[in-house]
Each structure stands twice: as C-alpha cells, then as structure tokens.
Design a binder for these strands. Structure first.
Lengths: 213, 213
DNA sequence: ACACAATCGACCATCATGGTCAATACATAT
DNA sequence: ATATGTATTGACCATGATGGTCGATTGTGT
C-alpha cells in the first residue's frame, strides 16, 4: 500500500499505464506467478522505476488492491441508482454501468475477483476488512429497496430474483467469452444491447405479474 | 498421446492416481505453468517413472486430452437420455449425471475447459477435431428432440431455453463455489438437490404453459 | 555549468523447471 | 543362492525466470 511519493507526481496517463499493466498481470496470474518483468515491459518503463515507485512486489500488490477498491467504489458501486425499484430494470442499469466500468478499467473486476479468492497471500487488516465490506455492499445494492410486488404470486420471490440474476449473468458471461480477444472498442455493441433487452423482456413476461393494461 | 506400454500394465488404481494428479495440475495451471514435480509428488511416484511412462511433458499432456475426451464421452455424454423431451427435466437429468461424473473424475471437466481455451499449445490434428466434435455433441445433446410446445406462447422459445440454461448453470456455479475446498464427499447433498428441484419448479411455473389439470 | 532528480537495464543470487541416468530394489527363474 | 531382467528412485544438470540492486546515463531547472 505504501508507494514512493514520486509516483503520484508523474504524468497521470503514465500512472494509469503502470497500474493497468500491473493489475492485468496480477489478475491473470495471481500474486505469486505474476511477473514484475512482464509488468514493466507492458508498462514500457525500466525495471528500476517500478521498484523506485513501490519498494517491492508486495507493496505494489497492496497498493493495487487499495486502488482497485477505491476506483470500483467511485466508478461502479456509487453509480447504481438505488431508487430504481424494479429488479430487472436495476439489473439493466447495473449492466450498463458495469460495461462502462469495464471499458475504462479492464481487468479491475477480474483483479478483485482473484484477490478475494486468493488465500495464500495475507493483506493488512484494513484492506481485508475493506474487501469484505465491499462484497457486502455489492450484494446490498442489488436487493435494497426492491419492489417485491412485481413478481407473480405463485412463485417464491427470493428464488425468482436469484434465477433472474443468474440468467442475466449467464448471458453476460457468454458474451464476454465470445468477445474474448477481440478489441471490444472495435465492435458495435448496440445489437447486443438490443438483444439483451429482448431477454429482459422475456424475463419480465415470465416472472412478473401479468400486465393488465 | 504416445505412452510407454508399461503404463497400461501397472496397477489400475496407480494409473488413476497418476492421471488424476496430472489432470489436476494441468487443469489448475495450464500447460506451461503445470509442474511435473508437483505431479509426481501428488501421485506419489519418482520422477523417473513419469518420464518412463510418457516420454516428455507434451506426450503426457496429449495422452491426458485423449483420456479425458474418452472418459467424458463414455461416462457423461452417452449417459444422457435423449428421450426426455421436457427441457427442464433433461437439464435435471444432466445435473445428476454431471454430479456423479464430477465425483468420479474431479478436475476432468476443468481440464477440458482449459484445453479448449488454451491457444498457446497446439495439439495433433486428430485431437483438435475430436475436441471440437465434443463441443458440438454436447450442445446437440442439450437441445435435440426437445418438446418446444411446453413453453408458453408469448415468449421466444429459443430465448426461453437459453435463459433457463443460464439460470440453472448459475445455481450450480454458486453451489460449486460454496463447496470449494470442502471435501464434497463429507457433505449431505440431499438438501441441495431438494432446493435445486424447487428452483426447477419455479422455472416450470414461469416458463411453461399454465398447468390445466 | 552545476546540482539533482528521473530513468534505465545489466547484473545478482536464488530457485524451479523439464529431463537424464547411474544406482538400487525387487521379482522371477534356475 | 545366484543370476537375470525389470521397476523404481532421486540426485543431478543445464537452462531460464524470478524479485530486487545499483552504478551509470539522461533530463531538467537554475
């Protein structure tokens, strides 16, 4: 978590280049297997600089966890509008935020994922607690102030919500897998959003009360 | 793919021990990062034997792909009853087969998954074709001879099926994640099967035509 | 021209890797 | 018992990657 002050003073795009390179490497290989050599090559800096900014690998790692948590909070969690009480609409909204976040910070979500799973590296206590807080918050933002009355009466509401969530995540995962490798910037995403909305409509027809307009 | 004949002659449980150890290591770390040292330690054999049975790492890998494909075909794909025409019931059936398969051959599914994803190692042509055939077959067994008339008329059948599939996979993934680490043999799975069936019932109520009994 | 910070990459000790092979342990047959 | 042949081991090797250091070079501001 402790970096040299000089790091904060350098060009911001360079900072991002380094952070993104490091996050990508850690996300793909975990702490132990991640290579500082690959990071500096990817970031386009000399070896000396990395260990000048951050004393050692572990400090870099902890700084990244802190950074990733911060950025995820401000650019993801806080953008979720908790006043959208329709569950499916909220998931739609979250999907857009998630996509935008992924555009601006690829690998950050993956990185946090690997950090959460990783047993074999122990973080400082404060980071550890922030991590678990983060998970709870994410869960809460999904379900808080949701209008349960939209769901048809003949099914269990909790089960319905989870099924809806899983179905949507399944769609997203399949898309992600499909796009793997291709530069996402070069794809016209609109047709996929359209298709996504069609799926959401199906979910509404099936899980929500009959529309009596 | 080419192993020393002696391998086939040794004790069958020992064969399995070696194969499972190797599959686990490759599944968790991919081809390059997988360590033959860890494999022999896990299998409880000396270094010499591994390279006596299989000439080198790559031969071992190819033998494993062949083995995994065979076992998955005979113990998984071929067990699926294609005459169950109710989509959700077929998925239920597949879930049971999948669980049993996972019990007998942990890591095999993961292993094949990593093999499919891996670009940076090229298999012999025949294995490559068997791999893609395998994927097609798996897809076909899901949808062949399915009765589309069960789905309510006001939603797109294809979309409905995919949503159902994703929802169910989501449930299974969440369970898997939850069980991670704990020896699955020491858990009483029945309550989870019961819960699973409840979810299936919800899916039937929501996606199928109204039950007019 | 000077001071000082930023930056680089050759270099280091260490370690894990895939693979080898001389040496054993073991079994079987005579 | 002895001899023969096979199954098995693990110390050993060259190689390459690792995290980290540091003297040298470049750049900047005065």
């Amino acid at each position: 978590m402790h970096m040299n002050q000089t790091f904060k003073n350098i060009d911001e795009t360079k900072q991002k280049r380094i952070l993104n390179a490091a996050i990508k490497e850690f996300a793909e290989n975990g702490y132990e297997q991640a290579s500082t050599n690959k990071i500096i090559k990817d970031a386009g800096i000399g070896k000396g600089m990395l260990f000048h900014y951050f004393n050692n690998k572990k400090d870099l790692y902890e700084y990244l966890v802190d950074y990733a948590l911060n950025i995820t909070n401000t650019e993801y969690l806080q953008r979720i509008d908790i006043d959208e009480s329709d569950f499916i609409e909220r998931l739609k909204q979250i999907a857009r935020i998630k996509a935008e976040f992924h555009d601006n910070n690829p690998d950050v979500k993956n990185f946090i994922g690997t950090v959460v799973l990783n047993d074999d590296v122990e973080l400082p206590d404060d980071l550890e607690t922030r991590l678990s807080d983060f998970q709870k918050t994410g869960y809460a933002l999904l379900y808080k102030k949701i209008d349960k009355s939209l769901v048809r009466d003949d099914v269990d509401v909790e089960k319905a919500f989870r099924l809806i969530r899983w179905a949507i995540e399944g769609y997203q995962n399949e898309l992600m897998q499909q796009f793997q490798g291709e530069k996402i910037a070069h794809i016209d995403l609109q047709p996929y959003w359209d298709e996504f909305y069609e799926y959401l409509d199906v979910l509404k027809t099936t899980f929500y009360k009959e529309d009596r307009t």
